[in-house]
Simulated scan of single mutants.
Amino acid sequence: MPERPIRLFGDPVLKTVSAPVEQVDDRVRGLVADLLDSVRVPGRAGVAASQIGVNLRVFSYNIDGDVGYVINPVIVELAGEVETIDEGCLSVPGLWQKTPRHSFARVRGIDLDGNEIEVSGSGLMAQALQHECDHLDGLLYLDRLDKDERRIAMRRVRESDWF
């Protein structure tokens, strides 16, 4: 399956809560394959289904060579201090903003065989798990910014050549 184009800020699918996967079928298997191909592009840490225009609760991740996916992910644990860290997004290209994130996250979901899986980690993995689950809830990292940081980010979006 090919890498899929990434939807950009302003596309309504990015602000829509994604529907749960009710049944793993060929469509879902194809979606997972597309997400895995799309996240393997160098420089990508995660891709949510909504970012490729599909309104289903699935995301892929690629953290330090650990590539995988989660269907119907739910954050079951956030721990550690909330840190303000630089964060960007494929759907908001060229911007990096100070974003509050927990230092540890654990996500539970299923795989293509319907088996329960958990993915967890700290650092970049924790950030990616929170970021991708936000996408599936219709949130962008810009929605997590404090008022001043968000004002700066929105000005930068309006000034960008892709907006």
Rank of each mutant, 00 (worst) to 15 (best):
S18C: 15
D143I: 00
N115S: 14
V74D: 08
V13Y: 12
E132R: 10
R44P: 00
H131A: 01
R57W: 11
L140T: 05
L136T: 06
L31M: 04
G65Y: 13
G109F: 02
Q127K: 15
I117P: 03
D111R: 08
L129C: 10
L95D: 02
D137Q: 14
R29A: 11
D66F: 14
V39H: 02
V157Y: 07
Y141V: 01
D143M: 02
D66L: 13
D11G: 05
L124A: 11
Q51T: 04
R27V: 14
E118G: 03
S122N: 13
I52S: 03
R156T: 07
G65S: 11
D134R: 10
R40A: 13
I117K: 03
A105D: 10
K98Y: 05
L129H: 08
G94Y: 10
V107I: 10
P93H: 10
P73S: 09
E149I: 02
L129I: 08
N115K: 15
V67Q: 11
E118Y: 05
H102P: 05
V28C: 08
P12N: 06
R27Y: 14
G88L: 06
V21N: 04
V58K: 12
H102M: 01
P100V: 08
S60A: 15
D143H: 14
D37I: 00
N115I: 00
D34A: 15
V13Q: 10
V24Q: 05
A153W: 10
S60Y: 06
N115L: 06
F59T: 05
M154Q: 11
D113P: 00
G114K: 01
L31I: 01
N62V: 10
A19C: 02
D11L: 04
T16A: 14
D148L: 14
Q97I: 00
A153E: 10
L78N: 12
H135V: 03
C133W: 02
L136F: 08
M1V: 14
P20G: 01
I63W: 13
D134P: 08
V24D: 05
E83F: 03
D64W: 09
H135W: 09
V24P: 04
H135K: 11
A49D: 04
M1E: 12
P20V: 06
